[in-house]
Simulated scan of single mutants.
Amino acid sequence: MQFNLNGKTALVTGASGGIGQSIAIDLAANGAKVAVNYLSNQEGAEETVRMIKDQGGEAIMVQADVTDLDQIEVLAAEVQDKLGTVDILVNNAGHLVERRKIEDMTIDLWRKIIDVNVTSAAFMSKAVIPGMKEKGSGIIINLSSVAAHDGGGPGAVPYATTKGAIITFTKGLAKELAPFGIRVNALSPGFVDQTKFHATFNTEEGRKATVAKIPLGRGGVPQDISGAVLFLTSPYASYITGETIEINGGMFMK
């Protein structure tokens, strides 16, 4: 199914690989001009932009640390200048950072995890909301996780906490922005294979054990998430706001 995003500008944070890369590519394939944000993986961001251009799309890459409020403002201004007002913001940037039990937690690590997963989404949204209000429309999509519901794996309490916060943030922001024609929703992926995240924080034995418990019998792929993004940016989702869509093959059902 094709969705017409011609004339729309999309900004995807953390789009140098994995889920973010897939989201950026699919948005561009359906007509959006895409800003590919990255922190340190310049090669991955270049690959994302190259893949978009190879399929005839338009994209730029913009380096910024989205936990830094000054850099967020610079990022938003650059996208505005080069591609126009942001119509679609996907707050994909996020990280478990490190597995550590609460009894061994430091305030610096706690704050780092909060900032990369929650502060980034809040202040990235803040930066693009004025432009969306001026246009009378806009779409913000936040990335949560199944960890928000089950507390996450070992040493992941801070990460799970932030992903729960994203669901609440999504609901509150949706109410705040609905009068201005701006819809805000969240996606909550379960186990997604083919990503650096799981390659870093899970063993092969753990991966197989997780997949064995998934009713649909497979791990997810980044395209499972980017497909949901396309749906939420389409007219088919025009009456959906404040919701969290679970994408996990049945491993968690509400």
Rank of each mutant, 00 (worst) to 15 (best):
I225M: 07
L39K: 15
M61L: 11
A165E: 06
N6Y: 01
N248Q: 13
Q71V: 10
A59D: 05
L75N: 10
S16V: 13
G20K: 03
G242E: 04
A77I: 03
V49F: 00
S238T: 11
Q63N: 14
P235V: 07
P222L: 06
N92M: 05
T48W: 01
V97T: 13
V34M: 05
F191I: 08
G31D: 07
A209Y: 02
A45P: 12
I225T: 06
Q21H: 03
K171W: 08
L232K: 10
Y236P: 01
I240K: 10
V62G: 02
E204D: 15
K213T: 14
E98Q: 14
N92L: 09
Q194T: 05
A15L: 12
T48P: 05
V116D: 02
G7C: 02
I114G: 00
M124W: 00
G138V: 06
G84P: 09
K82L: 11
Q63K: 15
L230R: 10
F180M: 10
S120D: 02
A160T: 11
T233I: 09
N202S: 13
R111M: 09
L216T: 14
R99I: 01
F123T: 03
N142W: 00
K135V: 09
G220K: 10
V62F: 01
D81P: 00
K196A: 14
G153H: 08
Q55K: 15
K82Q: 15
G249V: 09
I247L: 15
I60F: 02
W110M: 15
F3S: 13
L75K: 12
V90Q: 06
A237W: 06
V66N: 08
I107R: 11
H149C: 01
L143Y: 02
V34Q: 05
K8W: 00
Q223R: 15
V90G: 04
S137T: 14
L143K: 10
M132H: 10
K133P: 04
I23K: 10
V192F: 05
F197D: 11
G57A: 08
M61C: 13
A64M: 06
V146I: 15
E43I: 07
A186P: 03
S188M: 09
D26F: 00
V90A: 05
M1D: 11
F197L: 15
L232W: 02
G242T: 12
M51T: 08
V157C: 10
L27R: 09
T241M: 12
L143V: 11
Q63M: 13
V86Y: 02
G153I: 05
K8P: 02
L69A: 11
R100Y: 00
P158E: 03
K208Y: 00
I107F: 08
S144M: 06
A174Q: 03
K171M: 13
S188A: 15
V146K: 14
S16Q: 06
K126W: 01
I60T: 08
A156Y: 00
D150P: 06
E134P: 09
T106M: 12
E205L: 04
P179A: 08
S137Y: 04
G155W: 03
I88W: 03
A165D: 07
T195M: 12
I25D: 01
K101V: 01
L11G: 07
G56R: 11
G164M: 10
